[in-house]
Structures are given as structure tokens and as C-alpha cells.
């Protein structure tokens, strides 16, 4: 597949259809890392396999990347879902974007170049049932706790937070150029990394992400002190889908529950 991925990338660069391809290269040790390919000869160092875990959609909303204009992005499943969400929030112009992703056949690479193509591919490719993973186990453990125990659990987790904001920086949906946490007049969230400041930061982030977070896990992966942030994002996404009765398709394509208003809302307090 990497061969096909390289060929498509090379094609897009040589035909000057795109200025840059956002993909992966070999990193330190056995890892891979995000990489930017500007020239046909750069493509040689491109890699793509199961180790490519970074959610590259995070780069699509950055000002310096947007300035390149037309670009291509290599997308794993997580990146694809974030792209659909970003499109639904009007953060991406699809005519500027080529999405390269593995197809169902062995070695096949699919090029998606419109909102409709991207959406229909994502909807088809999301498995309806997924195997429970370690995050689900942790969530189940947390759900069994009493309110007090749960509060204590998260206080202990967030007490370790050093407020480096790697969670925010790695998140494709945290694209605000000015975050509420940095507002100084008024200052909503304490800057110091004490438990109160940390709790406020993470609760605000979880609320702000609800209905938007795709549970890609980039925040947890980025955390230098291994806080189990995905236990929070998993519950946020599942709760919103359940409470508002949304299919995965509906969830991804808008329906940002905390920022949309419907005159016929079931709840009377909002009308």
C-alpha cells in the first residue's frame, strides 16, 4: 500500500495539483511521525503503516498550513472522522483538499476530493460494532464508582496535570485561535496547575468538546504525564450519541448539540 500511497502523492505533487502532502515519515526508535512533503524527491522518505497513529487533521486548521492552499493529507480512520467534523464546522474548504486513505482492497489507495466523497467513504468504513478496548474497561470501572469516588478519581488524575496543553495542541477540533483558558480579563480559569485550576480546565474542555469530540485519542496520546483523557472523551462522545439519539453519521455531520438551537426542542427551559 505504501507504494500506491507514494505514487498518488508523487502524482499530486508533480502535477502541481497540491503544494504539500501531509503524511508520515520514520521517527525515532520504531515510531513514525508527522511529516510534510513539498518536493517529489521528498516522497522517498514517506511511510504508512499501522504505526502511523498521529491524527494529522490537527494541521489542517493551522494558519501557516492553510496558507499553502491546495494540499493532500494521508488519513487513517481517526483523521478521516476529524476531517468530516472539521468540514461540518466550516473549517476546511474541500476543494482545497485531497484525502488519501487506504481502501478495502489490499494495497489500494483511495483519493477523496469532495465533501460528499469523504462523508460517504467515512460512513461506509466505520464499523457498526467495535471490540471493547482498555479505555472501555476503564470507563466501565469509573461508571461503577459512586459520585464521590468518581470525583476523587478525576481529582487524583488531574492533580498530575502540568498544564502543558499538549492535549489541546494535539486535538484537531481544538482549533480556536484564542482559548478561553488564556483569557485574562476576566480570567475564567486559574493559570496555576493546582487541582482547582486543572479540574476547571479539563471540565471546560470536555464540555466544549461534547458533541464535537470524535474520541480519536490524540489528547491522551500526547499527554506527557499519562492522564487517562480518553476515558473522558469516550464518555463524552457516547453520552451525546445516546442522549440525543444520534447515529454515528448524524454525530459526525454536524448536530453540535451544545451550539445548536431548535425551536421544537423537547426541553422547555431552552425555548
Amino acid at each position: 500500500m505504501i507504494k500506491a500511497m507514494k505514487n498518488k502523492s508523487l502524482e499530486l505533487l508533480t502535477s502541481q495539483e497540491v503544494r504539500v502532502v501531509i503524511g508520515y515519515e520514520k521517527g525515532t526508535k520504531c515510531s513514525t511521525r508527522p511529516s510534510f512533503f513539498f518536493l517529489p524527491e521528498d516522497i522517498e522518505r514517506m511511510v504508512f503503516d499501522e504505526e502511523c497513529k498521529n491524527n494529522l487533521a490537527v494541521y489542517l486548521t493551522k494558519e501557516n498550513i492553510k496558507n499553502y492552499g491546495r494540499l493532500a493529507i494521508i488519513a487513517n480512520d481517526k483523521t478521516l472522522q476529524s476531517i468530516v467534523k472539521l468540514i461540518s464546522e466550516n473549517q476546511i474548504r474541500e476543494d482545497n483538499l485531497f484525502v488519501l486513505t487506504p481502501g478495502s482492497e489490499d494495497g489500494q489507495v483511495i483519493v477523496l476530493n469532495s465533501i460528499e466523497e469523504i462523508k460517504s467513504f467515512v460512513n461506509k468504513s466505520i464499523p457498526s460494532q467495535k471490540e471493547p478496548d482498555s479505555v472501555d474497561e476503564l470507563v466501565a470501572r469509573i461508571r461503577k464508582m459512586s459520585r464521590e469516588e468518581r470525583w476523587k478519581y478525576w481529582q487524583d488524575e488531574f492533580a498530575r496535570c502540568i498544564r502543558c496543553y499538549a492535549c489541546r495542541a494535539a486535538c484537531p477540533l481544538c482549533y480556536c485561535t484564542r482559548c478561553t483558558v488564556e483569557s485574562s480579563q476576566p480570567q475564567w480559569v486559574p493559570v496555576a496547575s493546582h487541582v482547582l485550576g486543572n479540574m476547571e480546565w479539563h471540565i471546560i474542555r470536555a464540555m466544549h468538546m461534547s458533541g464535537r469530540c470524535t474520541d480519536c485519542g490524540a489528547c491522551a496520546e500526547a499527554c506527557p504525564v499519562n492522564i487517562n483523557l480518553q476515558a473522558l472523551t469516550r464518555v463524552v462522545r457516547e453520552s451525546i450519541q445516546d442522549e440525543f439519539n444520534l447515529t454515528t453519521e448524524e454525530y459526525l455531520e454536524g448536530n453540535n448539540v451544545l451550539s445548536s438551537f431548535k425551536p421544537n426542542d423537547n426541553e422547555t427551559f431552552i425555548r
Binding site: R33, F36, C164, A166, R168, A169, A170, V191, A222, P224
Partner: peptide, 21 residues
């Protein structure tokens, strides 16, 4: 720096970085 996400992880875990607010 094109791939740098602009977080503070590197500085906060560094034994020397000591900028403060």
C-alpha cells in the same frame, strides 16, 4: 518546526527550562 504543535510539554519536563508567569 512545521510539525511542532505548539504545546509546552518539552519545556515543562525539561530539567532546566525555568520561565515562569
Amino acid at each position: 518546526s512545521i510539525r511542532c504543535l505548539g504545546c509546552g510539554a518539552c519545556t515543562y519536563i525539561c530539567p532546566i527550562c525555568a520561565c515562569f508567569d
